[in-house]
Simulated assay, not measured.
Amino acid sequence: MLRLRALSGLPRLLSGASCLGAASVLRLGPGRPYSVKRRSYWQALQRWLRGPPTPPFRRPCLVGAPVLRAVAAAVPPEQVRGPEVQRLVAALVAALRRADAVGLSAPQLGVPLRVLAVEVPERIVQAQAPRLRLARDMTAVPLRVLINPRLRVLDSRTVVLPEACHSVPGFSACVARHRAVEVTGLDERGEPVRWEASGWVARILQHEVDHLNGQLFIDRMDSRTFQNLHWMEELE
Rank of each mutant, 00 (worst) to 15 (best):
P83C: 12
T184H: 05
A99D: 14
A73F: 03
L161M: 07
A94F: 04
P112K: 13
A72Y: 02
P76R: 07
P112E: 10
R144M: 12
P142V: 00
L109T: 12
V160L: 14
S167N: 06
R97E: 15
A91P: 00
V111L: 04
L143T: 08
Q108W: 08
V111M: 09
V175E: 06
R203I: 13
E122P: 05
V160M: 14
S198G: 15
M138V: 13
A72L: 05
P112C: 12
M138W: 10
Q206F: 12
G199I: 04
Q79L: 14
A73G: 10
V80W: 02
N213K: 12
L143R: 13
D187I: 11
G214K: 06
L96A: 01
G82T: 01
T139V: 15
A202F: 05
E196L: 05
I147D: 00
P83F: 04
H178F: 14
A99Y: 09
A90F: 11
H207L: 03
G110C: 13
G185N: 06
S105I: 01
V75H: 02
L205Q: 04
P121L: 11
R114P: 00
V89E: 00
A164K: 01
V102R: 07
T139G: 12
L109M: 00
A140K: 12
D100I: 03
V89P: 05
A127C: 03
R203S: 07
L116F: 10
G110K: 01
T158F: 01
R98T: 15
E122K: 09
D137E: 15
Q79A: 15
P149K: 12
A106F: 04
L205D: 03
G214L: 10
A101E: 00
V102K: 01
G82R: 13
S198E: 14
P142M: 10
A91N: 11
V125P: 10
L116R: 02
R114E: 09
A164F: 07
V153C: 11
T184L: 08
L186P: 06
V201L: 15
L113C: 08
I204H: 08
E208V: 05
R150G: 11
G82A: 15
A91D: 14
G190C: 07
A135H: 06
H211Y: 04
T184I: 10
L143G: 04
I204S: 08
R177Y: 06
A90V: 09
D210Y: 03
G82I: 02
D100V: 09
A202C: 08
R194D: 04
L134D: 14
D187M: 11
